[in-house]
Nucleic acid binder design. Sequence first.
DNA 1: GAATGTGAAGGTTTTCACAGCA
DNA 2: TGCTGTGAAAACCTTCACATTC
Lengths: 227, 227
Amino acid sequence: MGESGQQSASIERLKPQDKRRISDSTIHRLSLYHRLLGELESDGTKTVSSKQLAELQRLTPAQVRKDLSFFGAFGTRGLGYSVSDLRKKIAEIIGLDRRWNVAVIGVGNIGSALIGFKEFPNRGFDVKLVFDNDQRKIGSNHKGMRVSDIRNLKEDLKANQIDLVILAVPSSPAQKIVDEVVAAGVKAILSFAPTHIDVPPDVYVRSEDMSMELEYLTYALVNNPGK
Amino acid sequence: MGESGQQSASIERLKPQDKRRISDSTIHRLSLYHRLLGELESDGTKTVSSKQLAELQRLTPAQVRKDLSFFGAFGTRGLGYSVSDLRKKIAEIIGLDRRWNVAVIGVGNIGSALIGFKEFPNRGFDVKLVFDNDQRKIGSNHKGMRVSDIRNLKEDLKANQIDLVILAVPSSPAQKIVDEVVAAGVKAILSFAPTHIDVPPDVYVRSEDMSMELEYLTYALVNNPGK
DNA sequence: GAATGTGAAGGTTTTCACAGCA
DNA sequence: TGCTGTGAAAACCTTCACATTC
């Protein structure tokens, strides 16, 4: 928290107008708007209202306007928003006005899926490095990527200026690997290991547990039989 | 909403004590507790306090107790909770006291990763069917599963009593396939298609967009340089 | 003494409703 | 007239603090 962190001067960034922290849900929805605006742009749609933006995602117009209002006033009263302008603004807010270097650790089921994931480059993410600890995999080609030895993790992450790490390893070695990743100076980790990951406060972790996603649904099935 | 949905009489289910809807965050944390209790059980830990349960996940003890209190009183004052009892209770709440039949639609990158995902059977999910529309894949073996023709989707889902569908297809055909799935009577869908999915109100959808997960992190990187 | 279970307080997020502008 | 931008109200969620129980 607090008033730390002056922005790099080179980019005049859109940031929250007041000092209030922006909620996770708002960030999530901004991402959603950004994705939808991309679809609309491809369709050739020029302008869009908060009402339309909301309906297409099952949200409320007020919600859409409030989310955007934290960062500025991007619309035109009586008219709505310019699809391409709004998309650019949101891209700037969530950091999609640049490309990001990604490393994938673990070339098992999920790891190899993500390496071959065509959506990533379209959305600004370039998988630059791939690691494993299995001698049979190291050096081999996996969907066009050469698999590196995890023993060189720290050095390779630094040398290649990796911004984001995707962790696709079992739970048992996960924390130890994360410690290495943190030591390499990486500040953002997307983990698929089904266990809690501990990091210093200046490092961001997002944990994805596929089974937990399904459990959400089973809860709903079991508890809302009719809905 | 409303008072619909009497429970099936055969299972005496733990349900919310008051009529207030349980929040998504609570369900998510119950899943987390369940996972952690599993680890503790393997370690041979017999009892656990809300304080411990909280610290291991970076939550507060009050939060843990409140979450549980919506469903009953499972602890012993002065002592804490029995690891194995609490785990069983939570399993019952989120529907993990039974097994679930899953179908995976789309045998691309993510689809095939999930088919081979060993964590699923450990957590109660059995992948029973796998579909694709690619003639070269249909009939072939993918990680031990025979790939079915998506043209028989509706019939096969019904015949095999599929509870949950995992959708791992591109955005463009996603909605059409979902309509089929819904017509087959399936009430829960986990979608990896990076687009909004529309379903009737008695069907539950959870959407996972890998790029959006990364975007969360880029927002943090760009906006909290020092944190 | 130790830790649960829970009303009440405090904080955050969403929705409302309308002033203001194209 | 139509739709944005935004304070204020309402709903919701988390934390506090303490009576209660083992």
